[in-house]
Design a protein around this nucleic acid. Sequence first.
DNA 1: CGGCTAACGCTAAAAAATTGCGTTAAGGTG
DNA 2: CACCTTAACGCAATTTTTTAGCGTTAGCCG
Lengths: 187, 187
Amino acid sequence: MAREMVRQGGRSARIQSEVHRTVRDMLKTMDRGAITVPMIAEKSGVTPSTIYRRWGDLSELLADVAVARMRPVADPEDTGAMGSDLETFILQYAEEMSSKVGRSMLADVLGSMEGAAAGRCCQFTYDHLETLRERALTRGEKAFDVSEAIDAVIAPIIYHILFRDRELTIDYCRSLVSRFLEKCAGA
Amino acid sequence: MAREMVRQGGRSARIQSEVHRTVRDMLKTMDRGAITVPMIAEKSGVTPSTIYRRWGDLSELLADVAVARMRPVADPEDTGAMGSDLETFILQYAEEMSSKVGRSMLADVLGSMEGAAAGRCCQFTYDHLETLRERALTRGEKAFDVSEAIDAVIAPIIYHILFRDRELTIDYCRSLVSRFLEKCAGA
DNA sequence: CGGCTAACGCTAAAAAATTGCGTTAAGGTG
DNA sequence: CACCTTAACGCAATTTTTTAGCGTTAGCCG
């Protein structure tokens, strides 16, 4: 059979979720640099070789867990207008990403070169913004461009989180959003 | 003696530069995931324990090398006007950072949590922009704000390099600069 | 139900990381 | 300049992590 077969149920799935859960637990209580594959294996009740074979590497596993955590469970909140929709989403986004776990997830996602972790993760952001845009269009509002929103709002937030060169206050995030919306309206 | 003593000359410095050179060489010819501390040690003529004791970790060593490479050797080129100064600098910056080695340096710098690698590296960018700003002021031009330049131009470039969600063309970088300069002029 | 094989466990071997201890050589001092 | 202190290194033993072979288990399909 030529088709590549990938099991997605039963034991395989059970192990994946158990390992993921273990990693999430460990990230809460201990330092990321102290986590090792054998430790994860023991706490999950799995052999290390299973983890190595399946994920290849600690950084790949961490990236996989991070992407799974970032995967949104619901659409962004509908506040009734595009401006408040965007602001609400951005404030929540900034708070999540700048938290300790958020920072860790970002580092993990960017730390894996092999998988498409980074791409998948920023796709989530793109989709959310696209949802807001379509919602605005449905309302008859003049909607923003998603790529421009990423450049004007998301990119600065991520930059400052990664390089720790500026405190990410609520006011600052709000000003990013409002300046972006003004520019849209003026165009 | 209470004062912390750090040796900076002689053998210690020789080893540092030798190890750095070895790492740079290896990054050119082989994949980053394949580089190990014992390999670096052998090629540098040093024992692994020396590297572990001094840098603590492979990722810390890579970050150290990356920061050293990013340290600018000269001020940005003076083209006679602020607009062209900024565009010239940004285009060069984008090309360096989006190259294979640039991407690797970024990943290495962001991969080390301990040291202040990320902070030092983005300080270089800040300093360069500050130089351009002061140069503009000296000429009597209406200068841009450095923090705003980072948000509007640098951050998007870094974002797209890290997440690989968009091709970083010359035209795109130029449009970031020109839009930023227009916004400055209009303010 | 029965065959196929992806995915796992176990174990041994290889590689990497850690640690103790003696030695070398910066950098300061009399 | 000779001497002293100790940061930084080399070496080697130990521990831990990673890799690889091989038999076994259990999804998925006909």
